[in-house]
Amino acid sequence: MDIAKDLALIDLLCAQEFPSEHERYHTAWLGPGDWPDVGDCYAYEAAIAERLTQRWGEAFRWGTVTLEERMARGEAIPEPWMALTALTIDVRTWVAPESGRHVTVAVADREDESRPRIRADVTETAPP
């Protein structure tokens, strides 16, 4: 577990071009793939969030339940927000002032059969 490396990865994603005209986001998994203890995953996510808050100010924190309801009514939700809705309930989002991109960090913990993981997304698309 190396917070400095994961923060550098987020910085890299903020600076990189997007893969295509239609795919306007980057996604990365932070921390180890398999946490020794589930609580460690949440603590690591909080540590990443604390450092991003020191850089960019308080995160916009929101739940994905509203997006899930909107999708159920047939509304199109853009990526990466649709994927985040399927993977997590609680999301933190900052706007990186250098790039103007939205940076999201969340624990993907909605899949009962898998252990939680930390996902980072960088996009130009504001949360819907």
Score class of each variant (00 low, 15 high):
Cys41Ala: 11
Tyr25Ile: 04
Phe18Asn: 04
Pro32Tyr: 04
Val122Tyr: 05
Arg110Pro: 01
Arg119Met: 14
Lys5Gly: 07
Cys41His: 04
Arg24Leu: 06
Trp29Met: 10
His26Trp: 13
Pro128Val: 14
Ala8Asn: 07
Trp81His: 13
Ile89Phe: 08
Asp11Gly: 03
Trp29Asp: 06
Ala72Ser: 09
Pro36Cys: 03
Glu111His: 13
Thr27His: 09
Gly57Ile: 06
Gly31Phe: 04
Trp81Arg: 02
Thr27Ile: 15
Ala108Ser: 02
Thr66Ser: 06
Tyr44Val: 02
Glu68Asp: 15
Ser114Arg: 15
Trp35His: 00
Trp94Glu: 01
Ala15Asn: 12
Ala96Trp: 09
Cys41Asp: 04
Arg55Gly: 07
Leu13Gly: 06
Lys5Arg: 12
Leu12Ser: 13
Arg51Asp: 13
Leu52His: 14
Val38Ile: 15
Asp6Gln: 04
Trp56Asp: 04
Gly57Thr: 08
Ala28His: 12
Asp90Ile: 04
Pro116Val: 04
Ala28Gly: 00
Asp121Leu: 06
Ala46Met: 08
Asp34Gly: 01
Ala106Leu: 04
Leu84Pro: 00
Ala96Gln: 13
Val95Thr: 13
Leu52Gly: 11
Asp11Cys: 05
Pro32Ala: 05
Ser20Phe: 09
Pro116Gly: 03
Thr88His: 11
Trp35Val: 01
Arg61Leu: 11
Leu9His: 06
Cys14Phe: 08
Glu75Asp: 05
Leu30Gly: 00
Tyr44Gln: 01
Leu84Phe: 08
Arg51Pro: 03
Glu50Cys: 11
Ile3Pro: 00
His102Ser: 04
Ala59Ile: 11
Ala15Leu: 14
Trp62Arg: 02
Val103Asp: 00
Asp121Thr: 15
Arg73Ser: 06
Tyr44Thr: 01
Leu13Thr: 06
Tyr25Trp: 08
Thr66Gly: 09
Ala4Thr: 15
Pro127Gly: 00
Glu98Trp: 07
Gly31His: 03
Arg61Ser: 14
Gly33Glu: 13
Glu69Ala: 11
Arg101His: 15
Ala59Pro: 15
Arg117Leu: 14
Ala106Gly: 00
Ala108Met: 13
Asp121Lys: 00
His22Phe: 14
Ala120Pro: 00
Asp112Cys: 07
Thr88Arg: 12
Trp29Gln: 10
Ala49Met: 02
Glu69Thr: 09
Ile77Leu: 15
Pro80His: 06
Cys14Lys: 06
Asp112Glu: 14
Ala59Trp: 01
Asp6Trp: 11
Glu98Val: 08
Val107Thr: 01
Asp112Thr: 10
Gly63Pro: 02
Gly100Glu: 03
Thr27Met: 12
Phe18Gly: 02
Val105Thr: 02
Thr93Val: 12
Thr104Phe: 01
Asp37Ser: 10
Gly33Tyr: 15
Ala72His: 05
Ala46Trp: 07
Ser20Arg: 08
Glu124Gly: 12
Thr85Ile: 07
Ala15Asp: 15
Tyr25Ala: 00
Thr53Ile: 08
Trp81Lys: 07
Glu75Lys: 02
Glu23Arg: 09
Glu58Ser: 14
Asp109Val: 11
Thr27Glu: 12
Glu68Val: 11
Thr123Glu: 01
Ile3Arg: 12
Leu7Asp: 06
Ala28Thr: 03
Asp6Cys: 11
